[in-house]
């Protein structure tokens, strides 16, 4: 009897140990988010002790590395906005159109063939997209506009925007496809039964029903575009440039982060720390976007009681 009890106690100890391991693993996962936040936050605070926060968000001159260096990030935000806008203009119609075709029109045979192909697009490393943008798309754009007598930069916002848009297509199409397929079939039948065409049914009934999910997918794509680094590092410019012309070179938040950190600067110089200030902005914006996206998809799930998303 005694040995039995002993065994039981040992067992309890081992179980507790395992339980403890599991809890600490979960804790580390949580700490990572805070780790990212705090590691960026502390360095950013250090930066703002040296340089004005106000000028950072409203100033228009970004000139690191000189004696009288200035850190006004507005042109950088403008470039980021422009390239992201171009990317979304490409990705939204094509991603959504692909999702509608896959979920509503394609036969199971074609669906099975086409969907993995789109997933390949999602699996291509961004450095590869960047290479393609710099080597194939950018010269193509320069040549095309030269033939029209318009001068375009080899680091044009258009080239990186288009390629970034293509990169985001699968992000938008994959989630939208799931959401559209989750719209109950009874709604389609009801609309068709009233004598609506297939197109009218999709456009007026299915898409509005799936709207929260589609918006959520688009926001996810947007956040991906904002944080994308390699394409812009390789194909966009370094020069902070505030312009409405997408054929000019522009720079983005991520490009400037990379540029500030790959040099041989002192870690505690404002030049290096400016990367963390920019990183903090990026972190905050993508976090907000993600929270909105998640709450929208949760609403959709509750409305149609789906658990598969």
């Amino acid at each position: 009897m005694k040995s039995f009890e002993l065994k039981q106690r040992n067992h309890g100890l081992k179980e507790q140990l395992i339980h403890l391991c599991l809890i600490s693993a979960a804790a580390i996962s949580v700490l990572t988010t805070f780790g990212v936040l705090f590691s960026i936050l502390f360095e950013a605070i250090e930066f703002f002790q040296m340089r004005s926060f106000w000028y950072f968000i409203t100033g228009t001159e970004w000139s690191p590395g000189v004696d009288n260096s200035k850190f006004g990030a507005l042109p950088i935000f403008a470039g980021t906005f422009m390239i992201t806008f171009i990317a979304m203009a490409v990705a939204l119609p094509i991603g959504l159109g692909s999702a509608i075709f896959l979920s509503e029109y394609a036969s199971p045979f074609w669906r099975d063939k086409l969907k993995p192909l789109l997933e390949i697009l999602a699996g291509i490393p961004t450095v590869v997209y960047g290479f393609f943008a710099a080597i194939t798309v950018a010269p193509g754009i320069v040549n095309f506009f030269a033939s029209l007598g318009i001068q375009a930069s080899f680091n044009s916002a258009l080239a990186s925007g288009i390629v970034m848009g293509i990169m985001i297509i699968p992000v938008i199409s994959s989630l939208s496809d799931d959401v559209i397929r989750a719209v109950p079939d009874s709604l389609r039948k009801a609309s068709l039964g009233l004598g609506m065409t297939e197109g009218e049914t999709i456009f007026n009934i299915v898409l509005p029903s799936a709207l929260p999910g589609i918006i959520s997918a688009s926001i996810l794509g947007l956040s991906k575009a904002l944080g994308e680094t390699m394409i812009v590092v390789m194909a966009a410019g370094l020069r902070p440039n505030m312009t409405w012309n997408p054929l000019e070179d522009m720079t983005t938040v991520t490009v400037r982060i990379v540029d500030a950190l790959v040099g041989d600067n002192e870690f505690n110089s404002p030049d290096t720390l400016s990367a963390f200030a920019l990183g903090l902005v990026l972190f905050a914006v993508t976090l907000v976007l993600n929270v909105i996206s998640l709450s929208l998809i949760r609403k959709f799930k509750e409305k149609y009681k789906v658990n598969t998303l």
Partner: peptide, 29 residues
């Protein structure tokens, strides 16, 4: 077939109103 379905309406087993207002449900088609 669209013209056929317009002339021959259908009501289904599960009530399936569109996720729109009562008014729009009726006015839509």
């Amino acid at each position: 077939e669209v013209a056929v379905r317009k002339r021959i309406g259908m009501v289904f087993q599960q009530p399936n109103p569109f996720p729109k207002s009562i008014y729009e449900n009726i006015a839509y088609a």
